[in-house]
Amino acid sequence: MRVLLVEDDTMLADGLKDVFAGAGFMFDQLTTAESALGAMELTAFDLVVIDLGLPGMDGLELIRCVRRRGLQVPILILTARDGLDDRVRGLNGGADDYMVKPFATRELIARAQALIRRSQSNSHSVISLGSLQMDMGVHEACLGGEPLPLTGREWNVLQSLLLAAPRVLSKTKLADSLSQWDKEITTNAVEIYVSRLRTKLQGSPVLIRTVHGVGYRLELEATSNVQ
């Protein structure tokens, strides 16, 4: 995975470099929007992290330029401004996610991975969380290198959870995504699929956490202990 960071603050950029490297990413950093635009045309990045408050051309303008040129790379905005206006403008401009400084490092990595997963789910590629891998092309899942046999519905539930992670996916949204025009899936049915998946995931660090009253989150066991 190759990440480009466009950020002019050296202390932050230097830290992010180590954080992304530690999470297994290849990392490039540029300080201006103009140079970033050139780099993106030459290199296929898996993710671009952009600070909105750049000198010269600002982050929002950079995002618009990138999208105008037809580049589909997922974009994560970093900003010091927390107003909703900025957020809406950023997302409308073509960004995929948004984080306000200062942020938790772990959350940044989780969001970065989620963005990459989602962008890859559109292509026929493999998306993963820890030791869980799902091959979108051939509809085959692996857990710790071993094949994980899944029924059609179980595949759908697990794929939705994997694409949503690290976010909590509500039961109703899960049910909606499973429902087809001829069949309505109830939230009770969702609970049954989740319980079957839990049995199949048992013994691996991948787990489905229940958030009472909302829904589920797919996570790695370690995340609950990491501070």
Binding site: M11, L12, G15, A80, R81, D82, G83, V100, K101, P102
Partner: peptide
Amino acid sequence: LSSAAHQLRTPLAGMHMQIELALE
């Protein structure tokens, strides 16, 4: 406020991250 936010939050984010890394 908007510029104060930027001037404060960016270095805070950098320092936080540096301390986390140093801790590792």
